[in-house]
């Protein structure tokens, strides 16, 4: 059972007992207002006793989390991002990037980066969810920044609209991530990754934090509901079956042309060779 709830119950029991004791003497004229005052004091007192240790524990826990996050940061991140997350020549400052950014980068395995010559890519995360939460808490404690959206905020099934999401996606995202969210090329070897199999929370975080080359999409440019619509549309593309056979990567005419030449014309030429050879 929750600690705070237990204290509440205790307080209630004490108050009930007091009432019983006083109710025996209630014929006294001054009893009623006096009782009220006593009762109020008691309640206030008990609550203050009950609440104080709770707040203290929470903030203690929080600072412990931040402390843990700081430790992880010192060991794993500070060599690039600086001892105080102030950034360096090779890595940006993390002051003010917020918990959402940390969650996105670390939980998708992009950070820590193995090879700086390449774009950070999605891979198995190095840290456990608890460690990531600690890191996020530490970075969030440096300066305010976008928070990790809660499950309630991410209920895209309820709050999203697929068709609207598609429209938004095609205007705001498809030019980099491709119309079917399969990814695409950017300048100088950078690329926009495929969005297939990405957690909804990470899609959301990417939009509000603008990781790597991706720009930020503020809540006025794309409202939170619209963001959920985009997520819902991506998820619908992900689960949609193929209507016309092998999807050929959903990247358009290049693979189609290749297949037409190799498999289409290739097999027909093979058959033509059979057709033109003499039977034995």
């Amino acid at each position: 059972m929750d600690r705070a709830l237990r204290l509440d119950l205790l307080g209630e029991v004490i108050i009930m007992a007091l009432f019983k004791w006083i109710s025996g003497k209630r014929r006294h004229r001054a009893m009623a207002p006096g009782m009220l005052v006593v009762a109020l004091f008691l309640i206030g007192g008990i609550y203050s006793i009950a609440a104080t240790p709770d707040n203290a524990t929470a903030s203690n826990a929080r600072s412990a989390l931040i402390e843990e996050g700081k430790n992880i940061f010192m060991r794993g991140c500070s060599s690039c991002h600086g001892l105080n997350a102030e950034g360096s020549g090779i890595a940006p400052s993390l002051i003010g990037v917020g918990a959402a950014s940390v969650d996105f980068q670390v939980a998708t395995g992009r950070m820590p980066m193995a090879d700086m010559s390449q774009q950070a890519m999605r891979k198995k995360p190095v840290y456990s969810p608890e460690e990531i939460a600690a890191l996020a808490a530490y970075v969030a404690s440096l300066a305010p920044g976008p928070a990790i959206p809660t499950a309630e905020q991410l209920n895209y099934e309820r709050d999203g609209n697929v068709a609207e999401g598609g429209e938004l996606f095609r205007t705001n995202c498809a030019m980099c991530h491709n119309a079917a969210a399969q990814g695409g090329a950017l300048t100088a070897g950078k690329y926009a990754p495929t969005l297939m199999g990405v957690e909804p929370v990470h899609i959301y975080e990417a939009m509000i934090t603008g990781p790597q080359a991706m720009p930020v999409f503020g809540d006025q440019a794309i409202t939170p509901e619209e963001k959920l619509s985009i997520i819902k549309w991506i998820k619908s593309v992900e689960s949609e079956g193929s209507y016309g056979g092998a999807s050929l990567g959903k990247v358009g005419p290049v693979t189609e042309g290749l297949l037409g030449w190799v498999l289409g014309l290739g097999s027909l030429i093979g058959i033509a060779v059979w057709l033109a050879t003499k039977a034995r």
């Binding site: 119309a179 990247v251 358009g252």
Partner: peptide
């Protein structure tokens, strides 16, 4: 998958047929 045409939208990897 591509969606209807409007002049403000575009997909990465827009190519013509071969």
């Amino acid at each position: 998958i591509f969606g209807p045409y409007t002049p403000t939208q575009i997909s990465a990897g827009s190519q013509p047929d071969w």
